[in-house]
Design a protein around this nucleic acid. Structure first.
Length: 148
DNA sequence: GCCAACGTTGGC
DNA sequence: GCCAACGTTGGC
C-alpha cells in the first residue's frame, strides 16, 4: 500500500493511536476493490513510500478493520471530497492499517534489481495503482530481505 | 519540470 | 460503445 510520506509517513502512522491510520484518499476503483473485496483483518501489508526522494518499502503493517466508507469523500474541505458521493451510497471505502514494525527503506532501485521480484505488480511498468496484491513468494522474499 | 502510462469524462 | 481530450500518478 502506497502512501506519500508528506501526507502520511510510516512515522506518522506509528505515532497515531494504536499505530493505526484509516487509509483515506483512495480514488481508484481497482484499489478500492482490493480493500473492499480481497483484504481481511490481519492480512499483511507492505507500507510503501511514494512520490518522495527515496521511494521504497519502509514498514510492515496489517489490515486492522473491515472496509467502511472513507469519510473524506463527504468532507467539503478535503482534497478527497467527491461531489458525486452520497452518504446513503458511499462510493469510496477504506480499511484501517496498523503499522507493526518500521523497517529500513528497501528502496525501489533495490526492489527493481532483485530478479526474484521481477514480476511483482508494484514494479510493473506503468503501474499506478496505489494498492496492489503481493504474491506469497514475493512476500516471503521481502520479509527475508528485511530481516537481515 | 518532464513525461510515460493509464484512468476518467463526455460528446457523438 | 467508441474514442479523443484531459487529468493523475509517480519515477526521474
Amino acid at each position: 500500500m502506497k502512501a506519500e510520506p508528506a501526507e502520511c509517513s510510516v512515522d506518522d502512522a506509528l505515532a497515531a493511536p494504536h499505530a493505526t491510520v484509516p487509509w483515506t484518499g483512495v480514488r481508484n476503483y481497482q484499489a478500492r476493490n482490493f480493500m473492499r473485496d480481497t483484504m481481511r483483518v490481519g492480512d499483511g501489508v507492505l507500507f510503501y513510500h511514494s512520490s518522495c526522494a527515496e521511494p521504497g518499502i519502509v514498514g510492515l503493517a496489517q489490515v486492522a478493520s473491515t472496509p467502511y466508507p472513507d469519510p473524506t469523500q463527504f468532507d467539503l474541505a478535503s482534497p478527497y471530497h467527491d461531489p458525486n458521493a452520497m452518504p446513503e451510497s458511499p462510493r469510496w471505502l477504506l480499511v484501517d492499517v496498523q503499522v507493526l514494525q518500521k523497517t529500513r527503506n528497501l528502496t525501489l532501485p533495490e526492489l527493481r534489481a532483485d530478479s526474484q521480484l521481477a514480476d511483482m505488480l508494484l514494479l510493473k511498468r506503468g503501474n499506478r495503482l496505489s494498492i496492489t496484491p503481493v504474491a506469497p513468494a514475493h512476500w516471503h522474499h521481502i520479509r527475508a530481505l528485511l530481516s537481515d
